Amino acid sequence: MKFGVVVFPGSNCDRDVVWVTQGLLNQPTRMIWHQETDISDIDVMVIPGGFSYGDYLRCGAIARFSPVMQATLEHAKQGKYVIGICNGFQVLTELGLLPGALVRNRDLHFICDRVPLTVVNPQTPWTTGYLANEVINLPIAHGEGCYYCDDNILAELETNNQVVFRYGSVPTPNVGAENINGSLNNIAGICNRQGNVLGMMPHPERASDPSLGQTDGMKLFKGLL
Protein backbone atom coordinates (compact mmCIF):
# COMPACT_ATOMS: atom_id res chain seq x y z
CA MET A 1 0.00 0.00 0.00
CA LYS A 2 1.50 3.32 -1.08
CA PHE A 3 0.97 6.47 0.97
CA GLY A 4 1.05 10.02 -0.34
CA VAL A 5 1.57 12.82 2.18
CA VAL A 6 0.62 16.29 0.96
CA VAL A 7 2.97 19.19 1.66
CA PHE A 8 1.48 22.68 1.71
CA PRO A 9 3.32 25.89 2.52
CA GLY A 10 2.89 25.81 6.30
CA SER A 11 2.53 22.04 6.79
CA ASN A 12 4.43 20.89 9.87
CA CYS A 13 3.23 17.34 10.54
CA ASP A 14 3.98 15.86 7.14
CA ARG A 15 7.27 14.30 8.20
CA ASP A 16 5.69 12.89 11.35
CA VAL A 17 3.36 10.87 9.12
CA VAL A 18 6.19 9.78 6.84
CA TRP A 19 8.11 8.52 9.86
CA VAL A 20 5.18 6.27 10.74
CA THR A 21 4.24 4.98 7.30
CA GLN A 22 7.74 4.62 5.89
CA GLY A 23 9.99 4.59 8.93
CA LEU A 24 8.00 2.32 11.22
CA LEU A 25 5.68 0.39 8.88
CA ASN A 26 8.03 0.12 5.88
CA GLN A 27 5.33 1.18 3.45
CA PRO A 28 6.26 3.05 0.25
CA THR A 29 5.55 6.74 0.87
CA ARG A 30 5.81 9.81 -1.32
CA MET A 31 5.71 13.43 -0.20
CA ILE A 32 3.45 15.29 -2.62
CA TRP A 33 3.89 19.02 -3.20
CA HIS A 34 0.57 20.88 -3.23
CA GLN A 35 0.90 21.85 -6.90
CA GLU A 36 1.05 18.26 -8.14
CA THR A 37 -1.91 16.79 -9.98
CA ASP A 38 -0.90 13.19 -10.76
CA ILE A 39 -1.48 10.97 -7.72
CA SER A 40 -2.46 7.88 -9.68
CA ASP A 41 0.31 5.86 -8.00
CA ILE A 42 -1.09 6.52 -4.51
CA ASP A 43 -3.44 4.28 -2.50
CA VAL A 44 -3.77 6.43 0.62
CA MET A 45 -3.73 10.24 0.59
CA VAL A 46 -2.79 11.90 3.88
CA ILE A 47 -3.61 15.57 4.42
CA PRO A 48 -1.42 16.35 7.45
CA GLY A 49 -1.60 18.86 10.27
CA GLY A 50 -0.01 22.25 10.37
CA PHE A 51 -0.95 25.71 9.20
CA SER A 52 -1.51 25.45 5.45
CA TYR A 53 -1.04 28.88 3.87
CA GLY A 54 -0.68 30.30 7.37
CA ASP A 55 -4.38 29.61 8.09
CA TYR A 56 -5.20 32.93 6.41
CA LEU A 57 -8.90 33.67 5.86
CA ARG A 58 -9.75 30.56 7.90
CA CYS A 59 -8.16 27.16 8.39
CA GLY A 60 -8.05 25.17 5.16
CA ALA A 61 -9.85 27.83 3.11
CA ILE A 62 -6.95 28.45 0.73
CA ALA A 63 -5.53 24.92 0.72
CA ARG A 64 -8.77 23.53 -0.70
CA PHE A 65 -7.99 25.26 -4.02
CA SER A 66 -4.59 23.58 -4.41
CA PRO A 67 -4.28 21.39 -7.53
CA VAL A 68 -3.48 18.36 -5.38
CA MET A 69 -6.79 18.70 -3.52
CA GLN A 70 -8.78 18.55 -6.74
CA ALA A 71 -6.88 15.36 -7.55
CA THR A 72 -7.63 14.12 -4.02
CA LEU A 73 -11.33 14.74 -4.61
CA GLU A 74 -11.26 12.41 -7.61
CA HIS A 75 -9.11 9.94 -5.66
CA ALA A 76 -11.83 9.73 -3.00
CA LYS A 77 -14.62 9.40 -5.56
CA GLN A 78 -12.85 6.29 -6.86
CA GLY A 79 -13.20 4.74 -3.40
CA LYS A 80 -9.53 5.17 -2.52
CA TYR A 81 -8.47 6.19 0.98
CA VAL A 82 -8.09 9.73 2.29
CA ILE A 83 -7.32 10.87 5.82
CA GLY A 84 -7.18 14.46 7.03
CA ILE A 85 -5.49 15.04 10.38
CA CYS A 86 -6.04 18.29 12.30
CA ASN A 87 -5.51 20.99 9.64
CA GLY A 88 -6.13 18.20 7.13
CA PHE A 89 -9.59 17.65 8.63
CA GLN A 90 -10.26 21.37 8.21
CA VAL A 91 -9.17 21.17 4.57
CA LEU A 92 -11.47 18.20 3.90
CA THR A 93 -14.51 20.07 5.25
CA GLU A 94 -13.64 23.13 3.16
CA LEU A 95 -13.31 20.88 0.12
CA GLY A 96 -16.69 19.29 0.80
CA LEU A 97 -15.39 15.75 1.17
CA LEU A 98 -16.70 15.80 4.74
CA PRO A 99 -19.68 17.77 6.09
CA GLY A 100 -19.61 20.50 8.71
CA ALA A 101 -16.84 22.86 9.75
CA LEU A 102 -14.13 23.32 12.37
CA VAL A 103 -14.48 26.61 14.26
CA ARG A 104 -12.73 28.35 17.15
CA ASN A 105 -12.40 26.32 20.33
CA ARG A 106 -15.05 27.01 22.95
CA ASP A 107 -12.71 29.01 25.19
CA LEU A 108 -10.95 30.68 22.22
CA HIS A 109 -7.59 29.21 23.29
CA PHE A 110 -5.13 27.03 21.41
CA ILE A 111 -5.13 23.62 23.13
CA CYS A 112 -2.07 21.36 23.19
CA ASP A 113 -2.68 18.26 25.30
CA ARG A 114 -3.20 14.52 25.35
CA VAL A 115 -6.83 13.53 25.65
CA PRO A 116 -8.95 10.39 25.95
CA LEU A 117 -11.04 9.42 22.94
CA THR A 118 -13.72 6.80 22.54
CA VAL A 119 -13.76 4.72 19.35
CA VAL A 120 -17.42 4.97 18.37
CA ASN A 121 -17.27 3.15 15.04
CA PRO A 122 -14.69 0.34 14.75
CA GLN A 123 -16.10 -0.85 11.42
CA THR A 124 -14.46 1.67 9.10
CA PRO A 125 -11.32 0.68 7.17
CA TRP A 126 -9.43 3.03 9.49
CA THR A 127 -10.60 1.61 12.80
CA THR A 128 -10.51 -2.16 12.34
CA GLY A 129 -7.60 -2.28 14.80
CA TYR A 130 -9.79 -0.96 17.61
CA LEU A 131 -12.64 -2.38 19.66
CA ALA A 132 -16.08 -0.80 19.92
CA ASN A 133 -16.10 1.82 22.69
CA GLU A 134 -12.36 1.37 23.25
CA VAL A 135 -10.84 4.37 25.03
CA ILE A 136 -7.53 5.53 23.60
CA ASN A 137 -5.28 8.52 24.23
CA LEU A 138 -4.03 10.80 21.45
CA PRO A 139 -2.39 14.24 21.34
CA ILE A 140 -4.28 17.29 20.13
CA ALA A 141 -2.93 20.68 19.09
CA HIS A 142 -5.46 23.10 17.63
CA GLY A 143 -7.10 26.47 18.00
CA GLU A 144 -10.00 25.78 15.64
CA GLY A 145 -10.99 22.22 16.40
CA CYS A 146 -14.57 22.68 17.55
CA TYR A 147 -16.72 20.61 15.20
CA TYR A 148 -19.92 22.31 14.09
CA CYS A 149 -22.74 21.52 11.66
CA ASP A 150 -26.47 22.10 11.41
CA ASP A 151 -29.01 19.88 13.14
CA ASN A 152 -29.86 17.89 10.01
CA ILE A 153 -26.25 17.01 9.26
CA LEU A 154 -25.62 16.12 12.89
CA ALA A 155 -28.61 13.76 12.89
CA GLU A 156 -27.38 12.14 9.66
CA LEU A 157 -23.89 11.64 11.07
CA GLU A 158 -25.28 9.91 14.15
CA THR A 159 -27.86 7.85 12.25
CA ASN A 160 -25.39 6.69 9.61
CA ASN A 161 -22.69 5.83 12.16
CA GLN A 162 -20.31 8.37 10.65
CA VAL A 163 -19.04 9.61 14.01
CA VAL A 164 -15.80 7.67 14.39
CA PHE A 165 -14.20 9.23 17.49
CA ARG A 166 -15.55 11.27 20.40
CA TYR A 167 -13.65 13.25 22.98
CA GLY A 168 -13.92 11.63 26.38
CA SER A 169 -14.28 8.17 27.81
CA VAL A 170 -17.95 7.48 27.04
CA PRO A 171 -19.42 6.52 23.65
CA THR A 172 -22.41 8.87 23.95
CA PRO A 173 -22.27 12.68 23.68
CA ASN A 174 -21.16 14.28 26.93
CA VAL A 175 -21.10 18.03 27.39
CA GLY A 176 -19.02 17.77 30.55
CA ALA A 177 -15.35 18.41 31.18
CA GLU A 178 -14.19 15.77 28.67
CA ASN A 179 -15.54 17.84 25.79
CA ILE A 180 -12.30 19.75 25.58
CA ASN A 181 -13.09 22.18 22.76
CA GLY A 182 -16.89 22.41 22.65
CA SER A 183 -17.44 20.17 19.61
CA LEU A 184 -21.04 19.16 18.97
CA ASN A 185 -21.70 15.73 20.46
CA ASN A 186 -18.02 15.53 21.47
CA ILE A 187 -17.12 14.81 17.85
CA ALA A 188 -13.36 14.33 17.34
CA GLY A 189 -13.48 12.49 14.01
CA ILE A 190 -15.98 11.62 11.28
CA CYS A 191 -16.02 9.68 8.02
CA ASN A 192 -18.01 9.94 4.81
CA ARG A 193 -20.90 7.58 4.09
CA GLN A 194 -18.62 5.11 2.29
CA GLY A 195 -16.04 5.13 5.10
CA ASN A 196 -13.01 5.65 2.84
CA VAL A 197 -12.54 9.31 3.89
CA LEU A 198 -11.70 10.07 7.52
CA GLY A 199 -11.19 13.42 9.19
CA MET A 200 -9.98 13.76 12.77
CA MET A 201 -8.54 16.54 14.91
CA PRO A 202 -6.33 14.37 17.20
CA HIS A 203 -2.93 13.25 15.89
CA PRO A 204 -2.52 9.44 15.58
CA GLU A 205 0.92 9.88 13.99
CA ARG A 206 2.18 11.51 17.21
CA ALA A 207 1.20 8.45 19.20
CA SER A 208 2.66 5.68 17.06
CA ASP A 209 6.35 5.43 17.92
CA PRO A 210 7.08 3.35 21.04
CA SER A 211 9.99 5.65 21.85
CA LEU A 212 7.43 8.38 22.58
CA GLY A 213 5.73 6.20 25.17
CA GLN A 214 2.35 6.13 23.47
CA THR A 215 1.20 3.89 20.59
CA ASP A 216 -2.61 4.10 20.47
CA GLY A 217 -2.37 5.87 17.11
CA MET A 218 -0.46 3.04 15.45
CA LYS A 219 -3.57 0.87 15.54
CA LEU A 220 -5.18 3.20 13.00
CA PHE A 221 -2.39 2.74 10.46
CA LYS A 222 -2.00 -0.99 11.10
CA GLY A 223 -5.75 -1.49 10.91
CA LEU A 224 -5.85 0.11 7.49
CA LEU A 225 -3.01 -2.10 6.25
Rank of each mutant, 00 (worst) to 15 (best):
G50I: 06
N121G: 00
P99T: 12
A76Q: 00
I42W: 03
L24V: 11
F89C: 10
A101N: 12
R30W: 03
F89K: 08
P122Y: 11
G50Y: 04
F89G: 07
E74L: 14
G129I: 02
L73E: 15
M69D: 08
Q35A: 13
I42E: 07
F51N: 12
V119H: 09
G100V: 10
I62M: 04
A132R: 14
P28T: 10
W126L: 09
L97G: 04
L24F: 11
P116V: 11
I85A: 01
L117M: 09
M45Y: 01
G100P: 09
G49H: 03
T118Q: 07
V119G: 05
Y81Q: 13
P116L: 11
V82R: 02
N121D: 02
I62L: 07
N87L: 11
N87P: 03
G100A: 11
W33L: 14
P48F: 00
D38K: 02
C86L: 04
P99I: 13
Q78P: 02
T72C: 08
M45L: 01
M45I: 08
Y53R: 04
M69Q: 08
S40L: 07
Y130M: 10
G49Q: 00
P28Y: 08
N105E: 03
I83N: 02
D43F: 09
A71M: 07
Y53L: 05
F51E: 13
A101L: 12
A101H: 12
Y56Q: 14
V46R: 13
R104A: 15
D113A: 15
Q70H: 15
N26D: 09
F65Q: 13
R58T: 04
L95C: 11
W126P: 05
L92D: 12
L97H: 01
L117I: 05
V82I: 13
I85C: 02
G79H: 08
V46I: 15
I32D: 00
E74Y: 09
T124M: 06
Q35T: 13
L117V: 04
I32S: 00
R104L: 15
C86R: 02
I111D: 04
V115D: 06
T93G: 10
F89E: 04
D38L: 02
N105M: 03
W126T: 06
V68Q: 04
D113I: 06
Y53I: 02
L102N: 06
L117K: 01
H75Q: 03
K80I: 00
L95Q: 07
D113W: 08
T118L: 09
T118G: 08
L98F: 08
N26L: 01
A101G: 10
R58S: 04
S40G: 05
L98M: 05
D113K: 14
R30F: 04
C59I: 09
R114C: 14
T124D: 09
G129A: 05
V115W: 07
T37S: 06
L131K: 14
T37H: 06
C59M: 10
I83Y: 01
D38S: 05
F65W: 15
H109F: 15
L117H: 05
L92H: 11
R104P: 12
F89H: 11
W126A: 05
